[in-house]
Computed example of a mutant assay.
Amino acid sequence: MPSVLERIDLRTSAETKALIARAAATAGMSVSAFLLSAAQERAKAVLSEVESLTLSPRDWEAFVTALDNLDQPRPKLAAAMERYRAWRSEQTDT
């Protein structure tokens, strides 16, 4: 099933339009293709900044160590789970 294409409308000054048109022509692209390409690149860059995590070597070691110790007993977590189960049991009994 073909995907439905969405439309984006925008307004700009004549100077900005001319600048974009010149850049698109230089790149051998239509204005629409140029704008879409530039917007996609910028959107990916913006999202990459907030959706990725860069760790120092020391922080990476701490992260890996924490992952390696996931199977260690967690008494507070076990107690919290037990309280939750008891609470859920009370909720379903009423």
Rank of each mutant, 00 (worst) to 15 (best):
A27Q: 11
P2V: 08
L67M: 11
R88K: 04
L67G: 14
A24T: 03
G28E: 01
N69T: 05
A33H: 04
R74A: 12
D68K: 15
L5I: 15
S30C: 01
A45H: 02
L36G: 08
T16G: 02
M81F: 14
K44V: 13
S30R: 06
E6A: 13
S13F: 01
T94S: 14
A27G: 05
V64P: 00
M1Y: 10
E90F: 03
L70A: 09
M81S: 04
D93L: 15
P75G: 01
A62W: 05
M81P: 00
L36W: 07
E41W: 09
L35K: 01
I8A: 10
Q91P: 06
P75Y: 03
P75Q: 03
A14I: 07
K76L: 12
V46W: 04
M29Q: 15
E51W: 07
M1N: 03
R22V: 03
L19P: 01
E15C: 00
A18L: 09
A79W: 01
R22D: 13
T16A: 15
L10C: 05
K76W: 07
Q91V: 05
K76I: 05
R85D: 12
D59V: 00
K76V: 11
R58H: 11
I8F: 13
M81I: 05
E15I: 13
E61L: 04
D9V: 12
A38P: 00
T16E: 15
A33K: 12
E41S: 13
L5R: 10
E41M: 14
S56G: 10
Q72P: 01
I20R: 00
T26P: 05
A43E: 08
S3Y: 02
R74W: 07
D71R: 08
I20N: 04
L67I: 07
A14Q: 12
E61I: 09
A86I: 07
E82W: 02
A25C: 08
V50H: 10
L77Y: 08
A18C: 06
K44M: 08
R22Y: 11
R58G: 09
E51N: 14
A78F: 03
P2Q: 12
Y84A: 10
R85E: 09
R7H: 11
A18N: 03
L70T: 14
F63I: 03
A45R: 12
M81H: 14
A39V: 10
E15D: 13
E61C: 09
P73K: 07
G28V: 03
A78E: 11
Q40W: 08
L10R: 02
L70Y: 07
K76A: 14
L47R: 11
A25R: 11
T65I: 07
F63L: 13
F34N: 00
S32I: 00
A79E: 15
R83Y: 06
S37Q: 15
T12K: 03
R7D: 04
V4N: 09
E51M: 12
L5A: 15
A78M: 06
L55H: 02
R22I: 13
P75K: 04
D9W: 13
L55T: 05
T65W: 06
T92W: 04
L10M: 14
W60S: 08
G28H: 08
